[in-house]
């Protein structure tokens, strides 16, 4: 009897908790459905659940169903074609190319962005003077504010601004480079060459996101007690050693979350790619899955096929998340039962 209710939360069964069962009328299994309880359930359980079912799960199911049809998207008629759309997708060079480009983004963008963000965050929090209080470099507060600026600009505006900056004839980048005497950049099309289009696009996305993730990491690092750093310093650890052996292990959960979050964004990346290279870039080298999906649905009027692409995008994203979790655990992340 006394054990009931205490097995939750992975606590050892024989441990008595202060919130254990109390004798008295409240022990009865049935409780009265008072107005208070009913309204509580409706507001805090029913409403969110209904919203979730209607606006999240229902569209998922619909898209899943349409992916098995040849629906054109503009008439109510459709035929069930089974998995034909998926078979076609696997053999569609345009889509496999787009998947490849998205995967490149999904691998490179999170790694580069988070590496830079982490370095900046460390500089701003613990990179300062080697004696006295643990603090960041001089002017840390200023850098912290400035580096968030790009994140305040909407993605589409970032794309359009950078498109102008990278303009071959009148852009800032080529203006500066030719001004420095590098004449080979006269009219150089950063977004128009196969070798530079993708790196330039990645650069723009990274530029837009570094500030935000830096702030996220700063908040996490601030949560680490200063005593740990002070103790490490007394033991003779330098800044690099402290970053690698103390900061990183203690904020790895934040890094993992950030990795998944930005990874999902990078696998979509529609806004940035559409603003920078609406036609998919030279030799379709920057065409991503979501762009190909949009094109298939609205330009080619194949909504069934496009829905199948949507399903594949969802699967790719799930695989990505699973990979991040796996890598984190293999690399020594916390396990399920550990305190978190």
């Amino acid at each position: 009897m006394t054990l009931s209710g205490s097995v939750i939360d992975g606590q050892p069964p024989n441990q008595t908790t202060p919130t254990g069962p109390v004798p008295g009328p409240r022990r009865g299994r049935r409780r009265k459905w008072t107005l208070d309880r009913i309204s509580f359930f409706i507001v805090f359980l029913g409403l969110p659940l209904a919203l979730f079912l209607i606006f999240v799960i229902n569209p998922f199911i619909q898209a899943g169903y349409y992916s098995l049809t040849n629906w054109s998207g503009f008439s109510p008629e459709q035929e069930f074609v089974g998995l034909q759309n998926f078979i076609d997708l696997a053999q569609d060079p345009r889509f496999t190319n787009a998947v490849g480009n998205s995967v490149v983004l999904g691998l490179v963008v999170p790694f580069v962005t988070l590496t830079i963000a982490l370095i900046f965050a460390i500089l701003i929090t613990i990179g300062g003077a080697g004696r006295g209080q643990i603090r960041g470099v001089k002017g840390a507060g200023f850098y912290r504010v400035v580096s968030l600026f790009p994140y305040v600009i909407p993605g589409i505006a970032i794309g359009l601004i950078w498109r102008l900056i990278l303009d071959p004839s009148s852009g800032l980048v080529n203006g500066v480079l030719t001004g420095l005497g590098l004449d080979q950049f006269e009219s150089f099309a950063w977004l128009g060459n196969v070798t530079t289009a993708m790196p330039a696009s990645i650069f723009v996305i990274v530029w837009g996101f570094v500030g935000f993730y830096m702030l996220l990491f700063i908040a996490a690092i601030k949560g680490i007690p200063a005593e740990i750093y002070e103790a490490a310093r007394l033991d003779g650890a330098g800044r690099a050693r402290m970053s690698w052996s103390i900061t990183l292990p203690l904020i790895r959960d934040n890094v993992q979350t950030a990795y998944i979050y930005i990874g999902i964004m990078a696998l979509d990346a529609y806004v940035y790619m559409q603003a920078l290279n609406p036609q998919g870039g030279p030799d379709s080298s920057t065409l991503v899955m979501s762009q190909q999906l949009f094109r298939t649905a609205f330009a080619e009027s194949k909504f069934g096929y496009a829905s199948a692409m949507g399903v594949v995008i969802a699967l790719v994203t799930l695989v990505f998340a699973a990979l991040v979790f796996t890598v984190n655990r293999l690399a020594g992340g916390k396990d399920e039962g550990g305190a978190s």
Partner: peptide, 9 residues
């Protein structure tokens, strides 16, 4: 990720 597909339907 699938907004495009779902809003279309």
């Amino acid at each position: 990720g699938v907004t495009l597909a779902s809003c279309a339907t």
